[in-house]
Design a protein around this nucleic acid. Sequence first.
DNA 1: GTCTATAGTGCGATAGAC
DNA 2: GTCTATCGCACTATAGAC
Lengths: 195, 195
Amino acid sequence: MVRWKPGTAERLQKAALELFATRGYEQTTAAEIAQAVGLTERTFFRHFSDKREVLFQGQELLVQAFLDGIDAAPPEASPLEVVAAALGSAASFFPDERRPHSRTRQSVIDRNPALQEREQHKLTTLATTVADALRARGVDELAAKLAAESGATVFGIAFTRWLREERSLADIAADVLAELLTLAETAAQALRPTR
Amino acid sequence: MVRWKPGTAERLQKAALELFATRGYEQTTAAEIAQAVGLTERTFFRHFSDKREVLFQGQELLVQAFLDGIDAAPPEASPLEVVAAALGSAASFFPDERRPHSRTRQSVIDRNPALQEREQHKLTTLATTVADALRARGVDELAAKLAAESGATVFGIAFTRWLREERSLADIAADVLAELLTLAETAAQALRPTR
DNA sequence: GTCTATAGTGCGATAGAC
DNA sequence: GTCTATCGCACTATAGAC
């Protein structure tokens, strides 16, 4: 007989998402989430530093997918090529089967500004981590930051589209990145013409 | 005889920044800020929807500077050219005299994750507003989002550098944008070679 | 302007796992 | 014995309702 089942955090996350989706985020207290899995409020806060975090913990795996993609890129790849590789790797983290769950989660986030803030913060953290990994490859600071932030932007836009469309995230992300490159080329021609 | 002095919000903001800079953000309560200018906690929350907002209210003017820059761009300008114009306009919002104040404010933000979240949220809001303005000019949705987010990225990076260097924000932003275009051109050559 | 619910912290106690 | 998950209680500040 085990007194404490494993996977407490996961059960709390599942219960939280269900409650948030039905009752709403603000209308759900941390104590209610804890109760739903037979725990106390105090235990909830042992697992999650704050109430919002229950929806975001677990994203370290996504970050790791980005880093794996970076490691897999050939050494001579340019910064944005490395980012393209990272995007491909990250996309595999969201197979199409995961779409329904992601949709539910996102609908909760979209309805609450506090959760949107946290989501953006996580995206920025991701960009910072990617930038560090690029710098470790020898990319200079400015290029690393720009490439990493651009990667985060592309990922964010592609992810939003993936929730609505039925195509794979990898395909969508590749298209979004391609569009960014096209925009830049067009602007580069205009801003510094014929050299 | 006026019953309430004007500029209450401004005085609260000034007092808040001073207290945050000396005592720290978390160690300063809303009640203390209010007291410092002879008001009650309740009044503080009538001016600012939450404690963090006291550091961010006033950014609507920056957003407006971006929009003015967009309006001033020639009709045939490509999306990122329009964004370049917006950046130039926004830069004039931070003349060099403002650097000391901005440095103090940023050092407070840098020391507190909750404030960083709000800052990023404001940048994203800015990007959304810029994207809407681009769409109103006829730019398609994806291009508008990408150009707007890239503009926000460039602004964010340039602003950080402006706090450290002594050059004008306009100069720095132009350089950062140029670097982004270079990165994109390099990647475009590699990812879709010779067509 | 007052009153209240909730978020979140600090500390001590308990009890099983090892 | 140590380590770790849990609970319980007291407490403050935020923020919204009245």
